[in-house]
């Protein structure tokens, strides 16, 4: 699938084929894609635990259910729990930045050297940053978000459906016994969609010009309708919700999966 089409087809899928297994290879593709996400100081805070729903003991599965996500946890055959490993920066102490210098990604042309990393970046920026939990969390979680978004797009590129949910962080840590400095983030539910790929249509979004600006905050970024048309042709901007057939689709899914309406 072309990149623009993948972006256009991604939406939160909440109806999965509960009994259709997901190929292990596709899960690996999702994880490989997450690993290649952009990441500040090349730290890579994101950790993932892949769970086969049917291999999880029922008491643990029930523990992980939140009121809002109980049904989707039942429906999705694969759950990927994402965590933020806050301990990584102090463990690697700038070594991955040094690696970037070694491989020429950070070059002297831009002021980078091992000495700069060892004597300035780690001791004066990174290490102190980890002591300001609020700021550190924001930075680390933002990078995790980027990696999780990569993972989501990969799932759709593989013909799967997926959505991110927020699990109960305390229970998630208990169930998986992760280290204390891992912060529970999201669970990505993965499976083959039981709903059509459009899933009711592309979700409503705020007006473009209310989100993006040009030069200053008073000048909305001008949206060119020609570009919009090109994106429609490329499959990135698709039919907007609500689609006329959605109500019927939900009724049929409710009937087939025996869900309340």
């Amino acid at each position: 699938m072309e990149f623009k089409e993948v972006v256009g087809r991604r939406r939160s899928i909440r109806f999965f084929e509960p009994d259709k297994p997901v190929e292990r290879e596709k899960i690996q593709v999702i994880l490989e894609t997450a690993r290649l996400a952009s990441c500040a100081v090349n730290a890579h805070w994101l950790r993932a635990i892949v769970v086969d729903r049917d291999k999880l003991p029922p008491d643990k599965l029930n523990q992980l259910k939140t009121p809002v996500a109980a049904l989707t946890l039942d429906l999705a055959p694969v759950h990927i729990y994402f965590f933020c490993d806050l301990g990584v920066v102090k463990r690697i102490k700038g070594s991955r930045l040094r690696e970037l210098v070694d491989v020429g990604a950070l070059a002297p042309t831009h002021g980078w050297s091992h000495k700069f990393v060892d004597e300035f970046v780690y001791p004066q920026i990174l290490e102190p940053m980890t002591n300001n939990l609020q700021g550190y969390l924001a930075a680390a979680m933002a990078d995790c978000g980027g990696a999780a978004q990569n993972a989501l797009l990969a799932a759709f590129d593989e013909g799967l459906g997926a959505c991110l949910n927020t699990p109960n962080p305390v229970l998630t840590k208990q169930v998986f016994g992760v280290p204390d400095d891992w912060v529970s983030l999201w669970v990505m539910l993965v499976g083959y969609p039981a709903e059509s790929w459009e899933a009711g249509g592309q979700r409503p979004r705020p007006v473009f010009e209310e989100l993006y600006f040009e030069g200053d905050i008073n000048t909305p970024f001008r949206r060119d309708s020609g570009v919009v048309e090109k994106l429609k042709a490329a499959g990135m901007i698709t039919r907007p919700a609500p689609l006329p057939e959605r109500r019927q689709e939900i009724m049929q899914l409710a009937e087939r999966l025996n869900l309340p309406m």
């Binding site: 009121p67 809002v68 049904l71 039942d74 999966l257 025996n258 869900l259 309340p260």
Partner: peptide
């Protein structure tokens, strides 16, 4: 089990439409 779940879903539907968030499990 499917018929039983259908009956349970009738009640869940009553709760849901009155703003009490509720989900059933997958059955049948």
């Amino acid at each position: 089990a499917r018929a039983q779940a259908r009956a349970g879903n009738v009640v869940r539907s009553f709760m849901i439409h009155n703003g009490i968030f509720m989900q059933g499990g997958v059955s049948g």
